[in-house]
């Protein structure tokens, strides 16, 4: 990590990240000034699920982290975090009261700590704008993926559990108001995962 010991080295590392590659050097230097650098050892918590959400996010510059979520007694490793990725962005943009996951380092890591105040005090900072644009694209991909998987599982469940009565006309072409909603079968007493997912999909609000 000796190569990330000075502001100049941090700036150079930032400039190598894909989202910041086209940002002018002086804007990168300013980003270094309005943020701070955090260094973590191995297996160190950046933040923990259930903690107050705080007001900072982290842009990983070097090393590796993993995102884990505890559900009951189990802890699931959701994904690895690589340099150039941001963790904890909900603290900057959303209003949830607590962290929804734990992030642990899996190798020595250096991260840029981005405080909420930096965003609010420097709305025209080109490097922060570039990071926000990168976040927008990333989140759009995650949301599309979520929608598609939900639809896929629901479709599988419907095909697997029962063959329901089909609408009389071509369903894809009919206007929504004109399409009669077929009666749903009575739910079984014990529902499989896919069935529960289907019920959620039908009734989510």
């Amino acid at each position: 990590m000796s190569d990330l010991d000075s502001p100049g080295a941090i700036a150079a590392a930032l400039h190598r990240l894909e989202p910041l590659r086209d940002v002018p050097a002086d804007a990168i230097a300013e980003l270094v000034q309005i943020t701070s650098v955090a260094r973590f050892g191995v297996n160190e918590a950046v933040f923990r699920q259930g903690e107050a959400v705080g007001s900072v996010a982290w842009l990983l510059l070097s090393g590796r982290m993993s995102v884990r979520v505890a559900t009951g007694p189990q802890q699931r490793i959701m994904t690895d975090v690589w340099p150039g990725e941001i963790v904890g962005e909900a603290a900057l943009y959303a209003k949830g009261p607590t962290r929804s996951a734990t992030v642990l380092t899996t190798a020595p890591a250096v991260a840029l700590t981005i405080p909420r105040s930096a965003l609010f005090d420097h709305p025209d900072q080109p490097a922060l704008i570039a990071l926000e644009m990168h976040l927008l694209e990333t989140m759009a991909k995650r949301l599309r993926s979520t929608n598609n998987v939900l639809q896929c599982v629901v479709n599988e469940q419907r095909a697997h559990v029962a063959e329901p009565p089909r609408p009389a006309s071509s369903p894809a072409d009919a206007p929504r108001a004109a399409a009669p909603r077929p009666a749903r079968p009575e739910p079984p007493e014990r529902l499989s995962l896919a069935q529960r997912l289907a019920r959620w999909f039908d009734t989510a609000d």
Binding site: T79, A101, V149
Partner: peptide, 25 residues
């Protein structure tokens, strides 16, 4: 006590886990 007893369920878990690969807390 919930039974995970068919291929659809297992596939659903795999798909959901795949979605969660994109999660960053």
């Amino acid at each position: 006590d919930f039974p995970a007893d068919d291929e659809t369920t297992e596939h659903g878990i795999e798909e959901a886990a795949h979605v969660l690969d994109g999660w960053k807390g």
